[in-house]
């Protein structure tokens, strides 16, 4: 350690008696000043980035709304499946429009995956439909709520922390979907529900990430569409939920970034000789 006077403090010259007076208090205090502000956020980019969270929350709401409509027979499973197919085609066009690579091979691969999914989906739907017959509906609802929350918490919003668990997040969403699907009347309903889940939580979320990387304007536009659709759907179900959703979107998009930025000044760290050295291994 270098003392305030610039002299290296050493252990080997300590005299026989424990001489405390040689310890200069200021030697130890000057390190206190080495506070470093570690990172800076700007307001508007943070607001735009928060769109990813808004979109993900909205997707979960879409999914639940579809479940409710299917459950109270407002929607027929066939219609939803047509809608899904339409959405896939729309997404495909969107993908092309973003000028992302798309060759014959990818086309073939995708068709293969799609046919495998439809085949297996139809095969296991009757099993899923009766999977939770013995479990009470309340339990299932509670379970799927928790799983959806887990999905939202561990979802990869683009920052690299220990919180991000892509596999866990996706499994939680699918688990929740299967739970909800097993409450529905027929196996076609179940299949519809599972296909919606796959569409929303895998294909949809991947596409959103691509959009975010490619064009910010489209991404913001997409966020707005999500919010508007969500409000329309929710307002038909219940006013109070719609209101809550609106409030939370405002909070998430405008107030939380402000809060995050105002908290940045507390994010300091002290550096000193005690820190573990970092080695660069490129040599």
């Amino acid at each position: 350690m270098i003392s305030a006077s610039g002299r290296q403090k050493v252990l080997y010259s300590i005299s026989e008696t424990n001489d405390e007076s040689t310890d200069d208090i200021y030697d130890y205090m000057h390190i206190n000043n080495e506070l470093i502000n570690t990172c800076k956020h700007k307001y508007w980019p943070t607001v735009f980035d928060s769109g990813l969270i808004t979109q993900q929350v909205s997707s979960v709401i879409f999914f639940v709304v579809i479940f409710i409509y299917l459950d109270n027979k407002t929607l027929e499973p066939g219609d939803v499946l047509y809608g899904n197919a339409l959405l896939i085609l729309l997404g495909l066009c969107f993908y092309r429009w973003l000028n992302l690579p798309f060759g014959v091979r990818l086309w073939k691969d995708n068709l293969k995956t799609l046919s495998a999914f439809i085949l297996f989906g139809f095969m296991v739907s009757p099993v899923i439909a009766t999977l939770t017959k013995t479990i009470s509906t309340d339990t299932i609802y509670a379970m799927s709520t928790i799983m959806m929350l887990a999905h939202l918490i561990f979802y990869d919003y683009g920052c690299e922390t220990a919180m991000v668990q892509k596999a866990l997040s996706f499994s939680a969403a699918l688990f929740s979907a299967v739970c909800l699907a097993s409450r529905l009347a027929t196996s076609l309903h179940t299949f519809t529900m599972v296909s919606c889940a796959v569409l929303i939580f895998t294909v949809g979320s991947e596409l959103r990430k691509l959009v975010k990387a490619e064009s910010l304007k489209t991404f913001i536009f997409l966020t707005i569409i999500h919010v508007i659709l969500c409000i329309i759907f929710l307002s038909r179900l219940s006013f109070i939920h719609c209101f809550l959703y609106g409030i939370s979107v405002l909070l998430l998009t405008f107030i939380c970034p402000k809060w995050l930025i105002s908290l940045q000044k507390y994010k300091t760290s002290m550096r000193g000789p005690w820190d573990e050295a970092e080695i660069s291994l490129d040599k």
């Binding site: 030697d27 130890y28 390190i31 000193g272 000789p273």
Partner: peptide, 11 residues
Amino acid sequence: VSHTCKSNTML
């Protein structure tokens, strides 16, 4: 055990 350790523990 050392001055570095001392300043570290102080902080």
